[in-house]
Design a protein around this nucleic acid. Structure first.
Lengths: 139, 139
DNA sequence: ATAATTGCAAACACTTTGCACCTGT
DNA sequence: ACAGGTGCAAAGTGTTTGCAATTAT
């Protein structure tokens, strides 16, 4: 494991899970349930502690869900000097869409220039309703 | 008071406070402290309950702060068929900037068209660092 | 050997609920 | 009179902390 820590099955499984779902944000209980399903139940405390470390290492990002009660985490990886992008999260199904387009870049540039405000993409989520949830609603 | 409720000093003061700071989001403790300062201490329960009602009436919007621990509220008013706008909140000083520009509208339109995702502006906050906090940092 | 990890119980912070009492209309 | 508002204590939730026991190196 990186950063001088010891290697344990629990830590490895948590990281695996985060990597597998790196296209969305996952909750602590989702991680916990995954570990249970795979016969490696881990105390919530342990999960929180390991997640804190990963956040510090910059391997994952921490967010707050739409209700403001739970935290969610997303794997971003260590070579995450990748292009900045915003996240759209559906308040209904939780799906996350990565947003990186010329319009976004134009907006970000404009904000920096006109307001002097630097957006932290990894701290921001735009909430709304995704296509499929809208469709389901109209059935 | 609207919506058939009774009129009380506490409710009036809470609404006044929200209106006075309608350009930013305020926390429950800020409301509570304001009431204390003005010799009208109100139990937190009461504040939460009234805020819930105001949210239901659509007079205020509820957000989650950057840390994900506290809720924040912002007065939007009842004639809030005003132009949609996003909010930029400085993670350092808490200042809120209302964002409504052509670039934002272009981006929103693009997102609706390309992803079928409808952003709820009143649910979304972009976090980052404002100009003055950046300047203070470099002193 | 010893530093890191873990589980448990308890503490925490914010929010919500149940209930008896009070207040505005 | 009575629907609505309020305070208090208690419960609820997600998260964090202290500590002793265990494990990886």
């Amino acid at each position: 494991m990186r950063s001088g820590g010891y290697n344990t099955k629990s830590k490895q499984m948590i990281l695996d899970f985060l990597q597998e779902y790196s296209d969305k944000t996952v909750t602590v209980s989702e991680i916990s349930e995954y570990l249970e399903r795979n016969d490696n139940s881990v105390n919530l405390t342990t999960i929180y502690r390991y997640l804190d470390k990963l956040v510090l290492q910059g391997l994952i990002s921490k967010y707050t869900d739409d209700t403001g009660k739970k935290s969610t985490y997303r794997y971003v990886g260590e070579n995450s000097f990748c292009h900045e992008h915003l996240h759209l999260q559906c308040s209904t199904c939780g799906k996350v869409i990565h947003l990186d387009c010329e319009f976004m870049n134009e907006l970000m540039d404009h904000i920096t220039q006109s307001h002097g405000f630097d957006i932290r993409c990894d701290k921001s989520i735009l909430y709304g309703k995704c296509k499929s949830c809208k469709e389901k609603e109209n059935m």
